[in-house]
Simulated assay, not measured.
Amino acid sequence: MDRVPQTPPQPQPRPAAALSTGAVARRLGVSPTTLRSWERRYAIGPARREAGRHRRWTPPDIARLELMCRLTADGVPPAEAARAALGVAAGERRAEAAPPPPAPTPGGTGALPLGAVRTECRGLSRAAVRLDAPTVAELLEAALAEHGLVTAWEEVIAPTLHAVGRKWATAGERYVEVEHLLSWQISSALHRIRPVPEPPRSPPVLLACVPGEQHSLPIEALTAVLGQRGLPARMFGAALPAEALRDAVRRTGPRAVVLWAQSRTTADPALARSVAGIEWGLRGARSRPALLLAGPGWSTDVQAPRTERLYGLRSGLAVIESLAPPRAATGAAGAEPFAYGS
């Protein structure tokens, strides 16, 4: 008698991983306190909870929170938004036979075009679109504490700024307020980073935007990380007049001058050459600074002695750290200048 072949048991799909309250907060761009408040006030918490354990949020729980975030961002009062989110969830349970609805766009119609980025970027962008300044500040502090300044800038802050800039460029005058709020909060977070004491009698690094250039966040980040490393830095911010820049170089005798230009219209090769040519010191032993050009505005080579480009915060820091007072190390080649926004 022939044996009837038995069908091997099919593996059961693994349940989707549940997230902690902190992980959900970072993903949505709200504070953990806000999530706990919503759960307490509006009963929009995890559908299931195990006794004696922390809250764990499943994908359906998170989908309800995403809907509530979108509604509150559109001006719907929280209580009404919670009722709507819970009502949608109840309707989905009653219509199990219906095809699943398309996945909602994170952040709604105002979501920023982020692409494949860290979860923290999505949370930060959502908070910025909602103009939720306290949460933006909290998320920035968390990213800086967890990843350090360089990684937080390159993998969380800069991608979010890029997305804001792209959204602003394609939406006319909309979202300018988002860019301004986010930029202010980032600048404030950078200024709260305390530098370590400078070594005595060490020539500083001067950092400034060229005349007419208002975008200073990237060199604010570089200034902050130099301070963390104990490297003396003098930051002059946006749109420093040309003569003031030359006077500062003569008065301080810096080891390097970093000039930031975000756009080609502000980049000034003639100014760069004049700064590179400034000398100080006794006759026969005069010194010049290394000139480091940063930003996408420097699209053409500047023919000047001891001049090179900075590419990215991490590699730019490495170039500055390698500088010895008479000569500079060779920077990275072939990379794109670090920039952000519009």
Results as ranks from 00 to 15, higher is better:
Val76Leu: 10
Arg48Asp: 14
Cys121Trp: 01
Ala73Pro: 07
Arg49His: 14
Glu146Asn: 10
Trp38His: 05
Ala142Met: 05
Cys69Ile: 12
Ala152His: 01
Pro99Ala: 12
Arg49Pro: 06
Gly29Leu: 02
Arg55Tyr: 10
Pro59Trp: 07
His147Leu: 15
Gly52Pro: 10
Ala95Met: 15
Pro78Leu: 08
Ala95Leu: 15
Glu50Tyr: 13
Pro46His: 05
Thr151Ile: 12
Arg126Gly: 15
Glu154Val: 00
Arg93Pro: 06
Ala103Val: 15
Arg122Leu: 13
Pro134Arg: 00
Leu71His: 00
Leu86Asn: 06
Glu96Gly: 12
Val150His: 08
Ala89Gly: 14
Gly148His: 02
Ala142Arg: 04
Ala73Thr: 14
Pro104His: 06
Ala137Met: 03
Ala79Met: 11
Glu146Lys: 10
Gly110Asp: 13
Ala145Cys: 08
Thr58Gly: 12
Glu96Met: 13
Glu120Ala: 15
Pro134Thr: 04
Val129Asn: 04
Ala43Thr: 11
Pro101Phe: 01
Asp61Lys: 04
Arg48Cys: 11
Ala95Arg: 13
Ser31Glu: 12
Ala85Tyr: 00
Thr151Gln: 10
Pro104Tyr: 03
Pro59Met: 11
Ala128Tyr: 04
Leu65Trp: 00
Ser31Arg: 14
Gly87Met: 03
Pro134Met: 00
Leu124Ala: 03
